[in-house]
Amino acid sequence: MKFKALGLAGIAIAMYTIPAFAHHSFAMFDADKKMTLEGTIKEFQWTNPHSWILINVPNAAGQPEQWAIELGAPGGLARQGWVPKTLTPGMKVTAVIHPLKDGTHGGQYMAVTLPDGTVKGNPNGAANANAGAN
C-alpha cells in the first residue's frame, strides 16, 4: 500500500470506515435515490468487513473531490467475479450509488462501469443488506 500524507482524504476514509466495524444498518443510505458518479479511481480497498471504492469526482467547479463507496466483503465480491485488481488507481469509471442521506460524499455501491465498458453490479437494482453481492 502506498501511504501518502494523511489529509482530508484520510479523515474522510476514517469517517466511513468506523461505522463499518459496528454492525451498521443500511438506513444511512437513501434507498429511493440513485446517483451517478463519473470519476477516477483513487483506491480500491479489498478488505473485510466491507470493501471500499475511493473515487475522485470533479465538482461543479471542476475540482476533484473524493467520494467513498461502500461494497460488500471480498468473499461475496469474488463470487461475482471481482478480484483485488478489478479497479486500480487511475481508472476512469462511472459508478451508480445510493447516496448517503446526510449529503456527505459517500454511498452504497450499486454498479460500476469499467473503462472497457464492462458493467459490474446492477444499476437498476434495489438496495439490500448485501451491498455488492448482486
Binding site: W46, L77, A78, R79, V83
Partner: peptide, 8 residues
C-alpha cells in the same frame, strides 16, 4: 484460487 482471492 477462489479460496485465496478474498484473503490476500
Amino acid at each position: 484460487d477462489e479460496e485465496l482471492i478474498p484473503y490476500p
